[in-house]
Design a protein around this nucleic acid. Structure first.
Lengths: 225, 225
DNA sequence: TAGATTGTTAATCGATTAACAATC
DNA sequence: TAGATTGTTAATCGATTAACAATC
């Protein structure tokens, strides 16, 4: 199913990778909805609020060619995007922090369906340890290290209160995870070989809050073609 | 409590606003932890993986001055950041989509504590309508418009399946919300006067997945001073 | 063939960093 | 005073957009 193509140039800029995830999401629904074989840079741009130029630049980073006058073959594009983003890889994931958010993440089937297989939930609060979360039981945070190395956990999701985030991240890194998704309010610093993605809802809400407050003076950055 | 200062230049770039939210988060815990009166651009930079130059540039966008040899007064900085980000404003928020994620968001006390007051949860699935979510009952999506205009809802959080996201957004916009937080997989297009922030966990996980897969060739972008 | 759309180069724009005078 | 740290200007770097030859 997944051809062993590699990306053309070795490093794809983060800004481009972020948009690749959007192209993937769009292409997936696009294919389903109207069985179209082809999608143009123009169409992609319009759907995602970009210029067609940006789309073509972005897609030039992956090892896949469009065809003049037609555009990009939808299923082919889908396949290459999946390869590039690791969307067809099964990852072993644990969640640290069994608060509201952590529990919700752990129970969310969507992640599993997309290959992010949550196989453990941890909390340092004894009152939460042992609780059932979907098919899993909350384990004590002291067990993280052993669990990660025994199970070969790839990704740690950090969903703890701000003060504890860096400490938890340090444990995860020492335990051997390959990447971290940070949902906690405070920034996490990791060594070069452990990428971290910050996905903090409160920060996003504050950004929105600012934009609303100063909406009159703000200019949008979404071009229409 | 909130001095009526305004930002210096009318528009703060989105990249800067995003970091302001991080400065805020850091400053809040920094103040609490070690009662320090002053924080330098150097310290902020180190904590957040930036250069001190970036920090000073960023802070030059807000109407607040540091003092040579000492840095920035922590409480003062905190106040101005809160003003700029609207962190001391109470917003009325509704959640559309009562799936796992939507329900988790609605029940998460942290948002309420930070001024994002969730006063309604909606779903178009009759099976979910009427269910209790914390102190709220899930309402039918058909009631969104009336609810938004009557209650003066400011922010709509979209947590529905990808196909439905734009439709839901359109209803929210027509109903008069001032901003949208999009948690659904697909991109949302809004008119200029309704800012939208994309906060999609699956996209973040895919970004992480890519970075892990191609870690050897990737360069980190977090400078150390 | 003629027209549309790609891939790519060059131009523009914006964001980050370096450097340093001002100042506490 | 001497030294440290700000605020700001200028330089660099990277990302986006425009333009157009190649091509299907």
């Amino acid at each position: 199913m997944c051809t062993m193509k590699r990306t053309k140039s070795s490093v794809i800029p983060a800004s481009v990778v972020r948009r690749l995830t959007e192209y993937l999401a769009f292409t997936q629904t696009f294919g389903n909805e109207n069985g179209d074989q082809w999608v143009s840079s123009q169409e992609l741009a319009q759907a995602l609020g970009l210029t067609s130029s940006t789309v073509r630049q972005d897609l030039s980073h992956i090892d896949f060619s469009g065809i003049s006058k037609r555009g990009y073959h939808v299923r082919g594009l889908l396949g290459v995007l999946e390869d590039t983003l690791g969307a067809n890889t099964i990852w072993k994931v644990i969640v640290v922090g069994a608060g509201n958010l952590g529990v919700a993440i752990a129970q969310n089937d969507e992640f599993r369906e997309r290959g992010f297989n949550i196989i453990g939930v941890f909390d340092k609060d004894d009152a939460k340890v042992g609780r059932q979360v979907g098919t899993l039981k909350v384990q004590n945070s002291s067990a993280i290290k052993e669990f990660v190395s025994e199970q070969g956990v790839d990704i740690g999701i950090v969903a703890v209160p701000p003060g504890a985030a860096q400490t938890v991240a340090d444990v995860l890194i020492a335990s051997g995870v390959h990447g971290i998704l940070n949902l906690s309010l405070s920034h996490i610093i990791t060594p070069e070989n452990v990428p971290v993605i910050e996905a903090r809802l409160t920060c996003s809400l504050l950004e929105l809050s600012h934009r609303i407050k100063f909406a009159k003076t703000a200019k949008r950055s979404v071009p229409r073609e």
